[in-house]
């Protein structure tokens, strides 16, 4: 157990270190791309807590991403709040939103839960558009450059610099990834996995499964919100399109591609799809067909995704 535990921590440390040390090797052009991938991978990591480890599929996670994005973006836009307090506000908004949403939505289970998540996600998107006067939803807005400096312990970093973007994104991603790893390896995480495998039996054993699912949804929504807030601050754009159904389906796709229920799967899936989409965009305007095709391929031939399949075949110890 302890050797496998050491191996797991070593693997994650190695992945994060590799991302940190890859900087001199990467061409300038890829800095922003990889930063974007890292932030979006956070979103997928959050999604994976719910889908991969609790067995709950959501089609409305863009709601939490957008809550984080607007929770961070609106205070900056209207009141000129600094980057770190804005990040905290975004995370708080999404945590609150996810907990409240869970209280209602978790009263349903199975496919009804899925439909309810999609419905609420879409309603949230429409709400952002409806209150356009305040949210500037349909056009989106750009955070002005002046407030986009990050003050950490007296040192000021310019968030417009791609190198800073990269490292900030990596920092947030590391926190999210390690948080999810800690959660799934904790006793609570074991309960979540037990719910995924058999909820009735878990309840029979005396666990309050409603609370556990609520916790999972809240953590998942909060991580998604942290990703949204980071995205707003690093890429300085806030818009309602990030609340659309497509942005709820993306984390599902990334997680499934990399392997649901593997801690590193979301990163792998996000990275692969990101570059696949860039490639497809050059070929056709209907590049979203790639999304559909990959989903179908996964369902038919690789339901466990890349790392899930690898775990089944080779490395049983992968968390």
């Amino acid at each position: 157990m302890s050797t496998s535990s050491a191996r797991i921590w070593l693997l994650h440390a190695a992945v994060l270190l590799a991302l940190l040390l890859a900087q001199p090797l990467l061409p300038e052009y890829h800095y922003v791309n990889v930063a974007r991938i890292l932030v979006l991978a956070c979103y997928a990591v959050g999604y994976n807590v719910l889908l991969g480890y609790t067995g709950l599929m959501s089609l409305g996670h863009a709601m939490f991403f957008a809550l984080g994005m607007y929770g961070a973006g609106l205070p900056v836009y209207y009141h000129g709040v600094g980057a770190l307090p804005a990040l905290a506000l975004g995370v708080a908004a999404s945590a609150l939103g996810a907990a409240l949403f869970g209280l209602i939505a978790l009263r349903t289970r199975g496919v009804a839960f899925l439909i309810v998540t999609m419905m609420f996600g879409q309603a949230f998107h429409l709400t952002l558009l409806h209150f356009n006067v305040y949210t500037l939803g349909d056009q989106g807005f750009i955070l002005s450059e002046t407030i986009r400096t990050l003050d950490v312990a007296g040192a000021a970093f310019d968030l417009a610099d791609s190198r800073v973007k990269y490292n900030a994104a990596l920092g947030v991603f590391s926190v999210c990834l390690l948080a999810s790893l800690l959660l799934v390896r904790s006793p609570v995480g074991r309960v979540l996995v037990a719910i995924r495998e058999n909820e009735d039996r878990t309840r029979l054993l005396g666990y309050n499964t409603y609370l556990a699912r609520l916790l999972a949804l809240t953590v998942s929504g909060t991580i998604a919100g942290a990703a949204g807030a980071t995205y707003a601050l690093l890429f300085s754009y806030v818009g309602a399109s990030f609340a659309s159904i497509l942005h709820s389906i993306y984390p599902l796709l990334w997680t499934l591609l990399g392997g649901a229920g593997t801690t590193l799967g979301p990163l792998l899936g996000t990275g692969l799809m990101f570059y696949l989409e860039i490639y497809a965009r050059d070929l056709t305007t209907a590049y979203l067909v790639v999304v559909g095709a990959v989903l179908l391929v996964l369902v038919l031939w690789a339901p466990r995704g890349i790392l899930g399949t690898l775990r089944d075949r080779k490395a049983r110890w992968l968390p």
Partner: peptide
């Protein structure tokens, strides 16, 4: 149930994007 949902999401984008083309 879950695979079907993922599959029909895939179908959604394939149909939608084909119509776009």
């Amino acid at each position: 149930p879950e695979s079907t949902i993922v599959a029909t999401i895939g179908l959604l984008y394939i149909v939608q994007q084909s119509v776009l083309v």
